[in-house]
Every structure is written in C-alpha cells, then in structure tokens.
C-alpha cells in the first residue's frame, strides 16, 4: 500500500529557466566550428548546381554549342574564385567527416575496439586513390566526346 496525502502549502520551489539565445553557437568556439562544418557543404551544393548547369546544356540541343558556353562559364575567373573557396570548404568537410567516421564503428580487434586511426587511414587512402584516378583520366585526354 502506497498512499500520498498532500496537505502542506504548495512548495516555495521556483525553478528558473535560462533563456535559449538564438546565437548560442557564437558563445563557444566548439559550437562555432560545428556550424562552420555544417555550412561547409553548401559549397559542395554550389558546385553541384554548376555541374547541373552543364548537364542541362549537354541535354538540350543536339550540338555542343551550349556545352561550350558552359565550359567557358566554368573557365571564367568569378566561378574559379568561388570554386577555390569551395575547395577549402569541401576539404574541411572531408577532414571533419573522416574524424567522425571512426566513431560510427565498433569492430573488436584482438580483444580491443579497433583504433580510429585504422578507419582514417582507409578513408584518406580512398580519397587519394580516387583523386589519382580522376586526375589521370582527366590529364591523359582519355575522356572526351
């Protein structure tokens, strides 16, 4: 039997809730870096839209005139400047992404959780190889239309 009878005057408890400021993430370096990390991928989206423009050009019309306009567009210095910043942003994404990936695995190797460095080595390896292949294909002119 468990019975509660409340007689006392209501308790004088008055918990105080601190307000949630909208700029909470400016208060702490860790949070600011988190928001930068989150927004770094916007440049990847920007680059994707550039590629999309290219695909639309390639798809419309049967000759390559629009495609050439797109290539010249890509060659223009404003686009290149944006893409330079974009490269740093995407590389920062790569860096933070590869830091987080080891935390999403828990393989046991010789009785111990596999150290995160193994995963990072594999990921940076993949980056290196993919880049090598892409550069090789692009530089040797194998790919053309």
């Amino acid at each position: 039997m468990f019975e509660v009878t409340k007689k006392e005057a209501p308790s004088k408890r008055k918990p105080f809730n601190r307000p949630v400021e909208a700029n909470w993430w400016t208060r702490k370096k860790f949070y600011t870096m988190y928001m930068i990390r989150e927004s770094s991928v916007l440049f990847a989206m920007l680059f994707a839209l550039e590629l999309l423009a290219g695909m639309i050009c390639a798809a419309t019309g049967n000759d390559t005139s629009c495609l050439i306009k797109w290539i010249n567009f890509m060659a223009s210095w404003p686009v290149k400047i944006v893409n330079v910043i974009g490269l740093f942003a995407v590389l920062y994404h790569t860096y933070t992404w590869f830091n987080l990936m080891p935390k999403a695995q828990r393989l046991m190797v010789k009785g111990e959780p596999m150290p995160g460095s193994f995963v990072k080595v594999a990921l940076y390896g993949a980056l290196f190889i993919t880049s090598l292949v892409a550069i090789a294909l692009a530089a040797t002119g194998l790919l053309s239309i």
Partner: peptide
C-alpha cells in the same frame, strides 16, 4: 504536513 504511507 505531507504524509506518505508505505509498508516498508
């Protein structure tokens, strides 16, 4: 006073 009744 508030009261709670419990077996133990």
């Amino acid at each position: 006073m508030d009261i709670v009744k419990a077996d133990v």
